[in-house]
Write a protein that binds this DNA or RNA. Sequence first.
DNA 1: TAGATTGTTAATCGATTAACAATC
DNA 2: TAGATTGTTAATCGATTAACAATC
Lengths: 221, 221
Amino acid sequence: MESKKISKSVLKRLPGYLAYLKTMPEGSAPHISATALANALGMGEVQVRKDLAMVSDGGRPKIGYQRDALIDDIEQFLGYDNTTDAILIGAGKLGQALMAYSGFDEYGLNILAAFDANPKMSRTEEGKPVYNVAKLEQFCRTHKVLMGIITVPAEHAQSVADQLIAGGIKAIWNFAPTHLDVPAGILVQNENMATSLAVLSVHLKAQIKEEKGQQAGKAEN
Amino acid sequence: MESKKISKSVLKRLPGYLAYLKTMPEGSAPHISATALANALGMGEVQVRKDLAMVSDGGRPKIGYQRDALIDDIEQFLGYDNTTDAILIGAGKLGQALMAYSGFDEYGLNILAAFDANPKMSRTEEGKPVYNVAKLEQFCRTHKVLMGIITVPAEHAQSVADQLIAGGIKAIWNFAPTHLDVPAGILVQNENMATSLAVLSVHLKAQIKEEKGQQAGKAEN
DNA sequence: TAGATTGTTAATCGATTAACAATC
DNA sequence: TAGATTGTTAATCGATTAACAATC
């Protein structure tokens, strides 16, 4: 019963709720209503309620949801309660930034090691080992790693993905700005800067146009 | 006429087409069909055709779209043809990685300067100036900057956003894992690692469960 | 009881996919 | 002409929103 099929849209909103719930001050009331959550995050209250219904076993009318329980439920649903081992390939600037990011613990993500085609050091600043990519596939197998984080240049991403899959990996977090071809059953989550930039860029273009329109309007008066 | 309203879903797919078209080898045919594009990117061909119809003035039956023209059309539509000035706030690891990323030029993005609450250097490795956040608002005004990139810790993000908006900024690229409250007309694009991680994590959980199910099945036989 | 709030059922909206006509 | 391909119109699908009944 636990496993109602959840849609990706709902799934993507859960971390937002979680983050907000966790940053609420200590002294806050132990309960929170969907209405309050919705207002804080600028969303519709019905949507929040429906989303929470997917992971929680319900709030109480007039009172709301118990905050602690809700946090637990979301974390459990997202699998943040037990850790996932991952490896990172491409120890460049971005790769190093990700290795250094301590916040991943909170999400149950544990980066075991980094790999690079041309390792410049044998350990990262944080003390994680940096290996040659040649050892990639074998490492995945022996450590039963299920997740790979790709931060290599676009032209090498596909080859790295192939090796990861050969090593038995089931999920890829792809920071390289390129499409990866993978067999069914393997999930690729693209962290695509270009996508975000496109949204921003088009918004700004529209904004500038509007402004010019207003100025033209003024000039005409 | 140029400005048919484009949906966000379409907009987000355009960079994918662009990237693929640009990485096609020099010797390739000058034309490409929606079918070929769709196959390469693992999408439906009708969707590709509809998307391209939004930005291009059409392909030719039996031949396809002229590749160069298509690239130009998408770039123009996304505003990559003229540069946008931006500033970055938070010169930590991630901020520095973004400052160092040379690929932004390609998207018409030009990061003028970085700001930090406690600048550790006066220039980044790339020679871009690093200022104290105190100068943020004024800098935005005098340089008419329209875009801000937030890479500060979550707890300072809202305050930074407020200052950016006071400085006249219209679009915010938010890497801090927190919701930002902004007035209408200001676009916030969240680059949310937690969101991606949630998708990956849930996929892996399902994968592991499935595997266990299969093993249990085997054992029963 | 009244009112706030939950959860569910139905209606709307938007985006994707399918079917088909048009064209080179 | 035949076939590949485009573009459009209609059908389907999924997600969001609205309406309402249930409950503390």
